[in-house]
């Protein structure tokens, strides 16, 4: 049995959770195990219906949904108790989550309490018997093959390590509601309140189809007008390198990289970004990369699919003008 911790948003299972389900199904296929899901937290409609459709599509036979008002506000320890209940009731041999902040945090609690190893950001299975995984280290600049042969294999799947493919045969996903064995201690480190902040576009950035990137080459806090115009014309989000946030040109919420957001847009347009590991760690999952850079030898250019060589402050306004002319905007 493989159990997958599925995170949800307003539409159902998140994209990275569906990737984790596909990853689990592939592992199940090679080991002959079944896949169950566990979904925690409030599930208002249409999220619940969306979740069940996503799970059916992924061939999941059963989803465990804990019923407890104390799970309304996030607490990693309480979530981990709810997950451990499922691991025990199903005698699971593997527990998988997506490599998100919550996925990794809950798995860390579970692995500690079960006294087993945990592997973060796995990209593939190295060997099934005994189980060993390949995972990203050094921000994805190196890979580690790691043994994961404890009683329960606990690991998170790196974002976009695989495409969320539907199962050959959709399942009719059954729902099993249960009462988790949460204790008061599990609730000590619990979200007290949430402040929605207008300037935090992290969600928009990680979900954007197009991201326009800006690095040191932008040249100053007051030199983003052309880049922001391009972002708007493409209906995308602005993402920046660590240099840009360290210099205070843009807020940290826009940072793409190992210590910022990890993005996976259809198109990434890094402008004036050389492509250090810190940044590459956050943008390597983009489907297509179009780099704009003065240096034809910069790692970002050589790793890109397409590039334009030159000063972004000349090229970006020209692209904006061409876009407006061709699109009649």
């Amino acid at each position: 049995m493989i159990v997958v911790l599925v995170e949800t948003d307003a539409q159902g299972a998140t994209v990275v959770s569906r990737e984790a389900l596909t990853f689990a199904r592939d592992l199940a296929g090679s080991s002959g195990a079944a896949v169950h899901a566990v979904a925690i937290g409030p599930l208002p409609e249409p999220a619940r219906t969306g979740l069940l459709a996503h799970l059916a599509d992924q061939g999941v036979q059963l989803v465990h949904i804990p019923q407890d008002d104390r799970l309304a506000a996030y607490a990693a320890a309480a979530w981990s108790t709810a997950v451990i209940d499922v691991v025990k009731s199903t005698s699971a041999g593997a527990l998988i989550a997506s490599g998100t902040p919550r996925g990794n945090e809950v798995l860390a609690h579970v692995a500690t309490r079960l006294d087993v190893a945990m592997a973060a950001n796995v990209v593939q299975i190295a060997t099934v018997e005994p189980l060993a995984v390949t995972r990203q280290v050094v921000g994805g600049a190196a890979l580690e093959e790691m043994r994961l042969d404890d009683g329960v294999a606990v690991f998170s799947v790196a974002g976009h390590a695989c495409e969320p493919r539907p199962a050959a045969e959709a399942a009719v996903t059954e729902v099993l509601e249960y009462a988790p064995t949460i204790s008061d201690r599990d609730l000590v480190a619990r979200v007290a309140r949430v402040e929605a902040i207008a300037t935090d576009d992290t969600g928009a950035l990680t979900n954007a189809r197009v991201v326009v990137g800006a690095g040191r080459g932008a040249g100053g806090a007051d030199r983003f007008a052309g880049l922001l115009e391009l972002t708007e014309l493409l209906g995308g989000a602005l993402g920046v390198s660590r240099v840009v946030t360290s210099l205070g040109w843009r807020p940290h919420s826009e940072q793409v990289g190992q210590t910022g957001s990890r993005i996976a847009p259809d198109l990434y347009v890094p402008c004036g970004i050389s492509g250090a590991i810190q940044h590459w760690a956050g943008c390597q999952s983009a489907k297509t990369i179009l780099a704009i850079n003065t240096d034809a030898e910069a790692p970002m250019v050589t790793r890109a699919h397409y590039a334009v060589i030159g000063d972004l402050h000349e090229i970006v306004p020209a692209i904006n003008a061409e876009l407006r002319a061709r699109l009649g905007r």
Binding site: A132, L143, E144, L290, A296, T302, I309, G310
Partner: peptide, 20 residues
């Protein structure tokens, strides 16, 4: 077990041009 470097990618970049 071991560390490995990801398979080095041969650059396949297509240069669309220079400047505006």
């Amino acid at each position: 077990v071991r560390l490995t470097a990801p398979t080095p990618r041969v650059s396949t970049v297509e240069i669309l041009g220079s400047g505006p």
